[in-house]
Simulated scan of single mutants.
Amino acid sequence: MLRPCRKSDAGLIAMYAADDRVARGTRAMPHPLPPGTVEAMIERASQPDRTEDVWVIDGSAHGHAEALGLISLERMDRAQSEVFYWIAPAFWNTGFATEAVRTLISANPHHADRIFAEVFQDNPGSARVLTNCGFDYLGDAEAFSVARGATVPTWTYTLKTDQ
């Protein structure tokens, strides 16, 4: 289940996000995670003028924790959006990320004609999530990873929605 972030999610999200393996899989997450980072993200996610919508991947319906990770959709120009997601390592290879991406695509809250995604090339599991959800490989690129302090090779994907 995807749901908006709540202040009560901060502790669990911070615990997962403090894991170097999670941070290194993202562009923007620092490692180590500074105090207050998650609380600030939750606050930004609730602002009416936000450009990125963030949802908690809630596993409680399956007997798991209320927060397994996060998924977000950032508005781009020309009816396009970019999806970002991460799952706590304890839930890797369980299908939760694929289910979350499929749910978000199905809802298409931005009414995007096209959704983009990129993953670091050393994270083939995230690439499988995208291809399992119907994304097509677009090409190679690079992105800066805050946690790594370096530019990292990426694979870029795109999905034409049924708008």
Rank of each mutant, 00 (worst) to 15 (best):
Q80M: 10
I71A: 08
G69K: 00
M15S: 13
S126H: 04
V38Y: 04
A107T: 14
F144W: 06
T94A: 07
V129K: 03
W86M: 13
D9P: 02
H64T: 04
R78Q: 11
R78V: 08
V152K: 01
A147Q: 02
K7I: 12
A18V: 05
P48A: 12
E118H: 11
D136F: 08
A143W: 05
T37Q: 12
P35Y: 06
H110R: 14
P32Y: 07
A67I: 09
A90K: 12
F91S: 08
V152Y: 03
H111E: 15
R44A: 05
M29I: 15
H64M: 11
G149R: 10
F91W: 15
A117H: 02
R3E: 04
D53Y: 10
L70T: 13
L130P: 00
D20T: 10
L12P: 05
V38R: 02
S145W: 02
S126D: 00
I42P: 01
R78M: 12
D162C: 06
I42W: 03
Q121H: 08
R21S: 15
E99K: 07
V119C: 15
T94D: 05
H111K: 11
W155Q: 06
S8Y: 07
A90P: 01
A28H: 08
L12C: 09
E43V: 13
T151W: 07
P89Q: 05
R24V: 00
G149D: 04
E39Y: 06
W92I: 01
F144Y: 15
G95T: 04
V54Y: 08
